[in-house]
Each structure stands twice: as structure tokens, then as C-alpha cells.
């Protein structure tokens, strides 16, 4: 019985104390800040230059930042944010990350067995990963580890693949890839040249069956949508005017694909 009394008395006193403290020492939260924060993706990637999403939301609410700095924000959320803040925002081209390599275990060969640390950035210090194509994806997942949205998958054939529907285009993986294989491209483009090796076609084919050999077939078929990267044996999608998905069929090595 006495136990119950003590608990009740302590509870009442604590409640009163909390009420007093919150009345006098409470921090007023800006309702606008909370609303803006709700519209941010919440991945805390830091791409906007502020300390996570709450930092950016605070800066937005205080008028110190302009909406649109978050690369990962969905376009409709950006529109809502702009409406809340009464600011105008120009709609940016939504982007998506693409791994420009097709060199998985079936296509590309390795010259040696790598037994070191399971991270691409570490593998760079042991003969740069020992792939025949020195430009190719090592498949050890440095990009997948930094992706705040879980959009990058390392396939069981050791190739990094970005899932377009999950990618928000924040660009963290672009910096993480030691081979510089990932680029942000407009979301509207359906197909890409999945190769980054600028060397001659014959040299590339020795290391990878799916390399772009620079034959120019795609460029001849769709001269407005494709071009050869000058000086290299590497075709490139004209992202200002991307080609239709059907063009992928002309590529003999299937480097041009979805």
C-alpha cells in the first residue's frame, strides 16, 4: 500500500515539475520548419551543404536558403515547399545515377584473384583491382554502401546496378566510385552507353565482351541522339535529345542498353 502511495506522490510531483520546466524553458519550434522538414527526403545525405535535412529545413524556414538545393527531393515535394515558403522555384531536370559499365563476371575477365578488403576504394591500392579492363567496375560495393536510399545493388556477378525507381539523384555514389564510373544523367533518357573505357575497340574487347567498341552503328542510325566522344572509341548519348529505347537493338556488343 505504501509503495503505491509513494509512486503516486512521486508521479504527481514529477508531472508538476515537467509542466513548470516546459512552460519556462521550452524551445519554441517553428511550425514552418517542421512542415518543410516533412517534405525533405530525410536521408541526411548532406548534399545540400547543411548538416542533414533538419539543418536545411531550418535554413529554409529562416529564409537563409533557397528551395531546390536538395537533389534528392521529389519534384512535387519541391513545388509544395516553394508554395509554403512563398518562393518561386524553377523546375530542375530530374536526374538519376547510372553506372557506366557492363563488365560483370560473364562479360569481363579478371587477371588475378583479389583477396583483400571488400571495398573498391581499398582494392585500388592492390594493382587497382586486377580487372583486365582498368576502367571497369570492381563490384565491391563502395557506391552501394554510401547510397542513402538503398538504390544500388551489387549483382551476384559483381556489377553495381542502380535501380532507377529508388534513385533520387543525390550524387553520393558519384564521389564514392574510385573508378569514376557513375554519372548523374537526366531521368528521361532510357538507354545509356554502359562503358567508360576510352581505349581502342580491339584493346577493350580483350578484357570485356560488352565494351563499346566505337563502331558508330548507333550514331549512323540516330545521328541526332548519339555521338562519338571526340578522340575516343566511345559512343555517347546526347542527353539533350536522348534516343528511343529501340536503338539499343543496333548495338553489336549490347553496351548500349537500358
Amino acid at each position: 500500500m505504501s509503495t503505491l502511495v509513494i509512486i503516486v506522490v512521486v508521479g504527481v510531483f514529477t508531472g508538476i515539475a515537467i509542466a513548470i520546466v516546459s512552460k519556462f524553458f521550452g524551445v519554441e519550434s517553428n511550425p514552418l520548419e517542421d512542415q518543410v522538414k516533412e517534405l525533405l527526403p530525410g536521408a541526411n545525405c548532406g548534399g545540400c551543404g547543411y548538416a542533414g535535412c533538419s539543418g536545411y529545413a531550418k535554413a529554409l524556414a529562416e529564409g537563409k536558403a533557397a528551395p531546390g538545393a536538395c537533389a534528392a527531393q521529389k519534384p512535387e515535394d519541391l513545388k509544395k515547399t516553394a508554395a509554403l515558403l512563398g518562393a518561386s522555384v524553377e523546375q530542375k531536370v530530374p536526374k538519376v545515377a547510372v553506372v557506366f559499365c557492363s563488365g560483370d563476371d560473364t562479360n569481363a575477365t579478371r587477371q588475378a584473384q583479389y583477396n583483400g578488403i571488400n571495398n573498391c576504394r581499398d582494392a585500388m591500392f592492390v594493382a587497382a583491382g586486377a580487372k583486365t579492363c582498368t576502367y571497369g567496375c570492381l563490384g565491391l560495393g563502395a557506391c552501394a554502401r554510401v547510397c542513402p536510399f538503398g538504390a544500388i545493388e551489387i549483382t551476384d556477378k559483381h556489377l553495381a546496378v542502380v535501380h532507377k525507381e529508388l534513385c533520387r539523384g543525390c550524387g553520393k555514389c558519384v564521389q564514392a566510385c574510385p573508378k569514376k564510373l557513375i554519372r548523374l544523367v537526366p531521368r528521361s533518357a532510357e538507354i545509356h552507353v554502359h562503358c567508360s573505357n576510352p581505349m581502342k575497340g580491339a584493346v577493350k574487347l580483350r578484357g570485356c565482351k560488352a565494351a563499346c567498341i566505337g563502331c558508330g552503328k548507333c550514331v549512323r542510325t540516330a545521328p541526332d541522339n548519339m555521338r562519338i566522344n571526340n578522340g575516343t572509341a566511345l559512343a555517347e548519348v546526347n542527353y539533350g535529345n536522348p534516343p528511343a529505347e529501340e536503338l539499343a537493338q543496333v548495338c553489336p556488343t549490347h553496351a548500349l542498353r537500358k
Binding site: G116, I117, R121, D122, M124, F125, V126
Partner: peptide, 13 residues
């Protein structure tokens, strides 16, 4: 442990 590989990574970063 591949200690030297770790050190190389850190020195480069």
C-alpha cells in the same frame, strides 16, 4: 589483418 592496405587507404583519403 590487411593493415598496410588500410593505411594506404587512409593516407590517400
Amino acid at each position: 589483418r590487411p593493415l598496410v592496405q588500410h593505411m594506404r587507404r587512409a593516407k590517400s583519403e
